[in-house]
Nucleic acid binder design. Structure first.
Length: 808
DNA sequence: AGCACGCCGACT
DNA sequence: GTCGGCGTGCTC
């Protein structure tokens, strides 16, 4: 629709230069050719800096007049026909930048598919006479007039020559801003004549004109048109036919829809249990009344939370609104997607990390054009360009993956709350084991709690048996398998039932240690031990990827008694093969699931009963549901407990509770065996009784005593540098500065070296500020962010993380 | 980020 | 005397 707004003469632009000094809008003049088309939220190309290098920018404001003392530069080009960011997105980015101590440009870019980010090029072009150039330089250009600035053939001496030629005006530097967004097209065939005419043409064809005959047949079958690639005849035949005037060929836009092939039968909403019905009845009025209410839907594993989500989404759709549902990466399985699609069909857009950049862009455009009303996706899907949102759902709310660990360090729940407030809609946080923060807010009435304590099938939770490994270890030296565990596995194998074994990998892996001198092989770049990989026969660093050979003798004392210690999935797999030679074992860990789709293939294989035992790391704890699994074994429950992190108890509890829910979900009785060295630890005790309430009470007391979240807010400042001294010096300096502005109520933890002091040849120190109310803190941190630019120059990196979730 | 300006060491 | 080192400041 044509609007009657006057032409725009000036725009405010956020440029793609992620630094603190440039974290502000810059004003540009709009040339007449663009003044009628340019709009807020569009991407533009603008000259920036001394050399007028071209950079991408986002228009965040427009104005008729600009009164400045300096000359304004002009917008170089528009990158969009319509805005890629709406008013909501621009406000959200602004808020997020302030809240997470990030640059506005970083926030804007995180909200968009990666292909909308510009690719930059720098070229050397010939401006003078090519023939007068030195032969050596001319050779670089070959037949071209432009040369990539970073071309590998350019030697340092050539660089000097090029610089001189540039000064003489023979050469010039130009900048390119390339849009990576490509729309995929395919050729669409539409008959240009009627059925009668086609039949007539067919009759007049030569007998051996096989391809033409096939084409006419195809056209007669679908007069509405079809894709050229769907009919297996040469392209030349189509081109000939077009020349004859039988048909038209049009390049039409196609979406790279990864799910298009699968035919999904529609599903009907099932009868709800009383728990589910109550939940739906509590939530749906808030959709209708545009109430910005946050709910905590706390339902045990198997209580049917997903069905509640689906019915709430249906309610939103019925009112012409849209719905946004977030799930952790690991839970976004094809089955999960299938289930949502079965209910809502083509209205569903799916955003997950398995999609290519092009596919993500296509899904994004479907949402943006209102072709999809329901979005299911992982963390970044919280920015889906939905209008008129009626409900936002975050499933498995406690998952750590909802927090982004790089700039901008946002937590999905915070963004979700902001968007829910903007759209005046409810936000549902769902979990069987809510984070303490969320649960505490429900307790205080900030969120409305909804409990779903019963499983759909009416079954109780599986029986849980704890095995004290300290006693077991005295009995036998079989490091990984206790006798009760071995017996239980044997029984399942006999009955042809399946077993899931979980190895808690966090902070625990197989490393080499010399039994003579205690030497441990460590990464030369990072301060952690190298992990043994039997399949590739080498030692790997899990942080930086450093690889080296397995030593045959100790590099320290030259003893040959250098053996591996600890437990990796590979070692357990070998032990399983020895204990149960007849069992078919599937191993699922970071190494076997690296390839795209490998994760699903393994699960499919296990689901088809092509294996007896599924052995894996944490990733098997979530979202899998196999009716024939009657035993879940946790080999090492407590390795995460010893990590220097105040959330380690919470994590352990959540993980054990989740994995326990995997046993006996159908008609068969399930058993869970947990092997632990800390059987009396409350996290393990409470998990074994599936007692969230008990755990919550105990953990809250500890949090209060220790001054942790949710009783205190926290902000983590991390300093890293190439030398230990430089990092330490800066963090202590910051410690002194921050002390000046804090009230006596605030607490400081540290400064302390991080649990892994050195990562990728950099040393890390951190300082944690725990506080309830500190009026001066935010300004201090914003100033620090400004200063961090100078630190960066000196090789010192400063990271500010609000509500950190790791390494505390 | 990337470019220019500016003030100190070894070279045509 | 100059070329060039990278410290510092700025980019509409």
């Amino acid at each position: 629709m044509e609007t009657l707004t006057p032409p725009i003469n000036f725009v405010d632009v956020i440029v793609d230069v992620p630094t603190m000094q440039t974290n502000q809008p810059y004003t540009y003049r709009v040339p007449a050719v663009f003044s009628k088309r340019i709009q807020v939220g569009m991407r533009v190309v603008v000259p920036f800096g001394k050399g007028d290098r071209l950079v991408q920018g986002f228009v965040v404001g427009t104005k008729q007049e600009a009164k400045t003392t300096y000359a304004l530069k002009a917008v170089h080009d528009l990158m969009d026909l319509t805005p890629v960011l709406n008013k909501e997105a621009l406000h959200l980015a602004q808020w997020m930048a302030g809240y997470t101590f990030s640059f506005t440009i970083s926030c804007l870019q995180t909200m968009l598919p990666r292909v909308l980010r510009a690719k930059y090029g720098k070229q050397i072009v010939i401006t003078g006479d090519k023939c007068t150039l030195p032969a050596e330089i001319r050779a670089l250009f070959q037949t071209q007039t432009a040369l990539d600035y970073y071309d590998e053939r350019i030697t340092p001496s050539m660089r000097a020559q090029l610089a001189t030629l540039q000064r003489q005006g023979e050469l010039a530097i130009t900048y390119l801003v390339q849009d990576q967004a490509k729309v995929k097209t395919a050729i669409w065939i539409e008959p240009a004549v009627g059925k009668d005419k086609l039949t007539e043409i067919a009759q007049r064809l030569r007998k051996n004109a096989v391809n033409q005959r096939r084409l006419i047949t195809a056209m007669l079958e679908s007069m509405a048109g079809f894709w050229q690639k769907d009919v297996p005849i040469p392209a030349a035949t189509f081109i000939q036919a077009e020349k004859h005037g039988w048909l038209t060929r049009v390049a039409k836009e196609v979406y790279r829809d990864p799910y298009r092939e699968t035919n999904i039968s529609a599903s009907q909403p099932p009868q709800l249990t009383p728990d589910q019905l109550r939940a739906v009845q509590m939530i749906t009025p808030t959709i209708t009344d545009n109430q910005n209410q946050v709910f905590l839907l706390q339902g045990v594993t198997g209580s049917g939370k997903t069905e509640v989500y689906l019915q709430c989404i249906a309610q939103a759709l019925m009112q012409g609104k849209t719905a946004l549902m977030l799930v952790p990466e690991i839970a976004l399985t094809p089955q999960m997607v299938q289930r949502v699609r079965a209910r809502f069909g083509k209205q569903v857009a799916v955003l997950h990390s398995g999609l290519s950049d092009g596919e993500k862009y296509d899904e994004w455009r479907r949402i943006e054009r209102h072709e999809a009303q329901v979005v299911v996706g992982v963390r970044s899907a919280i920015f889906a360009p939905l209008d008129n949102i009626g409900i936002i759902i975050i499933d498995e709310e406690h998952e750590a993956s909802y927090k982004q660990e790089e700039m901008p360090r946002y937590h999905t729940c915070d963004v979700a709350k902001w968007r829910a407030a903007w759209h005046h809609c409810p936000l549902i946080l769902g979990s069987a084991t809510p984070s303490l923060e969320t649960r505490a807010r429900a307790q205080k009435g900030v969120y409305q709690g909804i409990a779903m304590p019963r499983r759909i099938n009416g079954k109780g939770l599986p029986r849980v048996q704890l095995v004290d490994m300290r006693k077991e270890y005295k009995q036998s030296q079989e490091a990984d398998f206790s006798r009760p565990m071995v017996q239980a596995i044997e029984q399942r194998l006999l009955k042809h039932e399946q077993v899931v074994l979980m190895l808690n990998r966090r902070g625990y892996s197989s490393f080499l240690m010399c039994r003579e001198c205690g030497f441990v092989l460590k990464c030369p770049n990072c301060d952690i031990s190298l992990t043994l990989h039997m399949d590739t026969n080498n030692m790997k660093c899990h942080y930086c990827g450093h690889i080296e050979d397995i030593p045959h003798f100790c590099p320290n004392c030259r003893s040959t008694k250098i053996r591996y210690y600890g437990t990796g999935t590979e070692k357990v797999q070998e032990e399983l093969a020895r204990l149960f030679p007849q069992a078919r074992v599937l191993r699922m860990d970071v190494d076997t699931t690296r390839k795209k789709g490998a994760h699903e293939r393994l699960l499919q294989k296990f689901g088809d009963q092509q294996a007896d035992i599924l052995l894996g790391t944490q990733m098997i704890a979530k979202g899998l549901d196999f009716p024939n699994v009657t035993l879940v074994g946790v080999l090492n429950a407590d390795t995460a407990l010893s990590l220097p992190n105040f959330r380690s108890s919470e994590r352990t509890f959540q993980l054990l509770t989740q994995v326990s829910g995997r046993a006996g979900r159908a008609d068969k009785e399930g058993l869970v065996i947990i092997q632990t060295y800390n059987p009396e630890h409350y996290a393990i005790q409470d998990a074994s009784h599936q007692n969230y309430e008990q755990f919550y009470r105990t953990e809250m007391q500890i949090r209060r005593q220790m001054g942790y979240s949710p009783y205190y807010y926290s902000i983590k400042i991390t300093v890293s540098a190439a030398t230990e001294g430089a990092a330490a010096k800066r963090i202590y300096q910051l410690n002194d500065e921050v002390k000046q502005i804090l009230s006596p109520q605030a607490r400081l933890v540290g400064p302390s070296p991080q649990s892994i002091l050195r990562i990728k040849k950099r040393y890390y120190f951190q300082l944690i500020i725990k506080y309830k109310k500190e009026p001066a803190l935010d300004a201090f941190l914003q100033t620090l962010l400004q200063q961090s630019q100078n630190d960066e120059r000196n090789g010192v990196r400063i990271i500010i993380d609000r509500d950190p979730i790791n390494n505390i």
